[in-house]
Design a protein around this nucleic acid. Structure first.
Length: 223
DNA sequence: ACCCAGGGTCATA
DNA sequence: TATGACCATGGG
């Protein structure tokens, strides 16, 4: 009981310490989708280099990508790692997008149906699908990633070994179903995960610690 | 020289 | 269903 009711409070602390993040980085729906695939188990700085290569080659569109030989595409993706696999995944996503008639078309689908279709694409798993649902289609879906497991397990709010869907429902049930909130929350989790809570056994000096000044909301709960 | 990064798929038991 | 191997570059 204590555990689940604290999830909103963690958001308040993260927001108070880090402010608004304005995610997802990228200037178009398609760029966000490409980034979501390329960042799989990969540092974002490496993803930026690969996306820059695509832009320089004027290949940041579904048509351009399916018209590009996989070898050449993989070459542009090299800095983001797993380049052969990611070239296939981007191809699969682009074929799918073209077959669906573009993002404008599928934007009309209900969230459950859109999620099923995303998960049916080779190379799009639960987290990537939810990144796209949330940051492209503005759907109130809570994204679970490795940082989420680590941080909240460390805080004692979850075990950390729960499967993806279980965790997603825990977070979605604990919060208002608000895409803007989920957007900011996941961004804050990632920023916090990179920044402070790396290899420590406990978040002893970070903004989530009990005695941290940045975590003291002085009873002014924002929700 | 290690360790890990905003995961997912596939083969095996 | 539940592990483990595999993918691969770049920054710390």
């Amino acid at each position: 009981m204590q555990a689940r009711t604290s999830i909103p409070k963690v958001y308040d602390k993260l927001f108070a310490a880090n402010g608004k993040q304005n995610w997802w980085p990228g200037n178009s729906a398609f760029e966000i989708m490409v980034g979501a695939v390329l960042t799989q188990n990969t540092a974002w700085t490496n993803v930026e280099k690969a996306i820059a290569n695509l832009k320089k080659a004027k290949a940041l569109s579904p048509q351009a990508i399916v018209n590009t030989h996989p070898r050449r595409l993989a070459g542009w993706l090299k800095p983001s790692g797993y380049f052969n696999i990611k070239a296939e995944r981007l191809r699969a996503m682009c074929w799918w997008l073209l077959g669906q008639g573009g993002t404008r078309k599928i934007a009309k689908l209900p969230t459950d149906e859109l999620r099923r279709r995303l998960l049916a694409v080779h190379g799009i798993g639960p987290e990537t699908a939810d990144d796209i649902l949330l940051y492209v289609f503005n759907r109130p879906v809570f994204v679970i990633d490795a940082y989420t497991r680590r941080i909240f397990a460390r805080l004692g709010l979850i075990e950390g070994t729960e499967d993806y869907e279980t965790l997603r429902h825990i977070f979605e049930d604990a919060l208002d179903s608000n895409a803007g909130l989920f957007n900011e929350y996941h961004a804050l989790v990632v920023v916090h995960g990179k920044d402070v809570c790396r290899k420590r056994p406990l978040c002893d000096r970070c903004c989530l610690a009990e005695d941290c000044p940045a975590s003291d909301l002085s009873g002014s709960e924002l929700h």
